[in-house]
Structures are given as structure tokens and as C-alpha cells.
Design a protein around this nucleic acid. Structure first.
Lengths: 139, 139
DNA sequence: TGACAAATGCAAGTCATTTGCATTAAGATA
DNA sequence: TATCTTAATGCAAATGACTTGCATTTGTCA
């Protein structure tokens, strides 16, 4: 079964990083698995209600620890709140600066530089975001 | 004189956008002109002390209105606060996820896509940021 | 199974950013 | 230049995302 296989994989990753496998974390990952778009913690909390109960604080802590181990990615695309998403196919985002709507931008042909930057030893990830107005707000 | 010429230019831009030319705004732009790196509002306030007095709230409001008219660029590179910078030569940033240190990344060879995105009419700007650990934090 | 550290929930705190409102000052007009 | 209109400013207070402290619960592993 693909699903439990995935869960086992996740459990293994959690353990590898010294994190315990808890219902709270599995539920969180389940939400990301079924919502492949950037989610703010408040949105996650709303989605969480259908699968169980969890404290906002725990959500903040779990989301942060999962981001640290690279299972989910932290996105700084909003002025207000941090978003997280599960990395699927390489993509970027388009953000409406008026209403905050976020669209995925697939098949981006960006070439990233392999430049060595003095003063920085480890580059873990990058983020490319586009900002503008969606059709609704541009009126 | 290059300096007053620049100020006149700025004044014109302010007026064109229906904004009044106030000492507060000119001082703010002066700071950006002399500090070509991302600045958080708190840092701006500190720099402002040497040229005059201004309320933090006014700073927030001015920085926002200048960003809206494209005189300065809003950067979402920190988890904690918004940064602004005056656009100089096209560049991106490298951010240390541990201490928050920011480095400019010049001569970036990124090719941006000319893709048309459904649902979005106007794309105003983009931002490409790299996240990692600086030499100091990577120990 | 029992010990132990990590995970959780609750209450309270922190801090960047925003809002309301009365006052001041730019810029247009007479 | 005096006046008028409206945006800009400063202050106090509010908002809201996120964090922290601490007591309790629960995975994990010997």
C-alpha cells in the first residue's frame, strides 16, 4: 500500500532525526500530503479539526521541527505569516500582494548559479517568488 | 549636483504618486541611499537618529508607501521582520537561517521565465533568496 | 514493564506591525 | 501671502503571529 509505505518512510525519517513518531506529527504530515500548497499554521489548524484535536502551540513546534529536518519547506511569501508546504515537483510561487492568494508556478526554467559565496559555507535551499496582482484584485 | 538632483527626482516621484514631500520621507530615502542593503524598520529607526527624530509608526507608514510606489523594495527574507532596500544593480540575497545575517549576491545568472500565469494579470517583481548557514553559525 | 527524555497543552509573554484619533503641516487656491 | 483642504505625523492602545515556562503525558528503548 502506497499510503502506509509513505507513513513508514516518514516514521523512519522522524526517527533518524531523533524525533518521536506521534499522532500529532503523523496527522500534520497527512495534511501536507493531501494539500500540496503553501499553508499557514492557522490554515493547518483548521484542516486538523477533521482528523483530530491539536493545540496551536504544538502545531507551531511540529511544523518548525519538520522544517528543520527538511520534510517540509518554510516559505516566507507573506508579510503576515509563515507558510509551509511539502516539497513536490520543483516549483515556485506567485503571490498576490493585495489578497495574499498564492499560485504554484510549475515548469520554471530558472537556472540557479553554482557560485561560491564568501562568508557562507552551507546553502540549504532557495526560494523564488513572484509578486503581483491577481485578476480579481487588479480592477 | 548629483545629490540634489537625486532629491528632486525623488520629490517628483513622490508628487507623481500623490504623496507629499515631507522631511520624514526625504530623510528616509537618504538613509536608503547611503545604506544599500536590506534594512528592517528598527534598523532604519536607529540610523534615523543621526539625521533627526521620527516616530516608529510614521516610519512604518512611510516605508510602506514608498514600497507601494516602487521606490524601495520589500523583502520577505526574515522569519521575524520585513526588510526594505533601495533597488540598486540587480541582485539577490543569501540569508543565514541561524543568525539572520544577510549578504548580497551580485552577478546572479538566473534566467527568469516569461511564462504567462493564468489568474494573474500583473507581475510586479520577484525575489530570489538563498538560505543557509554562514561560516560563523556553521560550527 | 519501567525509566527517561521528548512531546504536549495551557497560560502568559514577546514583539513586529497596525489602528484610531487628535494635531500639524504640505500644497493648492484665492 | 493668508487660507483652506487633506494628507502626514505622533501618541496610546490594540492586534495577531509566534514563543516560552512549566507541569503533565506519552513514545521509545533497555
Amino acid at each position: 500500500m502506497k499510503c502506509s509505505q509513505h507513513t513508514n518512510e516518514i516514521s523512519a525519517t522522524l526517527k533518524d532525526n531523533g524525533l518521536k513518531v506521534t499522532p500529532g506529527r503523523l496527522g500534520l504530515l497527512d495534511i501536507f500530503k493531501h494539500n500540496k500548497k503553501p499553508l499557514a499554521v492557522k490554515e493547518i489548524a483548521k484542516l486538523y479539526k477533521s482528523i483530530g484535536k491539536i493545540d496551536l502551540v504544538t502545531l507551531y513546534r511540529n511544523v518548525e521541527s519538520l522544517a528543520e529536518m527538511g520534510i517540509i519547506k518554510k516559505l516566507r511569501i507573506s508579510d503576515k505569516e509563515i507558510h509551509y508546504e511539502i516539497p513536490h515537483s520543483h516549483h515556485h510561487h506567485l503571490v498576490c500582494t493585495s489578497c495574499g492568494k498564492i499560485a504554484d508556478l510549475e515548469n520554471c526554467e530558472v537556472r540557479l548559479p553554482k557560485t561560491k559565496i564568501p562568508g557562507f559555507s552551507k546553502i540549504k535551499e532557495h526560494s523564488l517568488e513572484f509578486f503581483g496582482l491577481c485578476n480579481t484584485c487588479d480592477k
